[in-house]
Design a protein around this nucleic acid. Structure first.
Length: 209
DNA sequence: GAGTAGATCCTCT
DNA sequence: GAGGATCTACTCA
């Protein structure tokens, strides 16, 4: 069995996975899961090694703290959807909406270890060689996996976009938390340990704290 | 090796 | 009209 056949045979996470009300738990459980995009039959996959949780309207670091607007509307919808937005006019950021309708929880995917379709990722990013910068950091993931704001609102159980579980788990002692990156403006909320990552993994972004 | 500017556009005030 | 859940390249050392 090739790797490709294996990942095709993997279990998609059911939508019920995203509908639970504990976004921190979901963010942590996503570590080790496999993100798959399959736009126009260009199959790319990678293992998630870094996430950040954004918890509800009260979270000052979250876009949803400004209320339900045209942009944040999808965060308020039922979980299991993609929230893709443009930042700094340059980067497409991919988030997973969680929780039930009316509660704007989301998980930002910040670090991924590529598994399949690295040739496609290299073409999309314009990089020459395969190294950790390919899918390190949310902006790079957006490019490598071909995300675009037009994909905002897509359900995560389609054949174009889903997250799979192949049974792999990182050892518990390697799972670490830290404050979130790039949200210093959020005051007290910037100090919360809502970031989850795999210690020592080279696809984890940001500085070691 | 460290620090900083520029890219570039959508959303909300 | 300002600024952002970022990255890269370029400067200076």
């Amino acid at each position: 069995m090739t790797i490709h056949e294996k990942t095709l045979a993997m279990q998609k996470l059911p939508l019920s996975f995203y509908l639970r009300n504990d976004v921190l738990k979901i963010a942590k459980e996503l570590l080790g899961k496999i993100l798959v995009t399959n736009w126009n039959n260009e199959y790319t996959s990678g293992r998630i090694v870094e996430t950040e949780a954004y918890a509800g309207e009260t979270d000052k670091a979250s876009h949803a703290s400004k209320g339900r607007t045209a942009r944040t509307d999808v965060m308020f919808k039922e979980g299991g959807r993609a929230y893709v937005y443009l930042i700094y006019g340059v980067h497409q950021m991919f988030n997973i909406v969680t929780n039930k309708e009316g509660i704007p929880d989301a998980v930002l995917i910040r670090g991924i270890e590529p598994i399949e379709g690295t040739d496609i990722m290299l073409r999309r990013t314009g990089k020459k060689k395969l190294d950790e910068t390919l899918t390190k950091g949310p902006g790079n993931i957006g490019r490598a996996f071909g995300f675009h704001t037009s994909q905002c609102g897509l359900l995560l159980n389609s054949d174009e976009l889903f997250i799979a579980d192949d049974g792999f788990k990182f050892p518990k002692e390697l799972i670490t938390t830290s404050p979130r990156i790039g949200v210093d403006y959020a005051g007290k909320h910037a100090e919360l340990h809502y970031r989850f990552f795999v210690k020592g993994n080279k696809y984890v972004s940001g500085k070691v704290r």
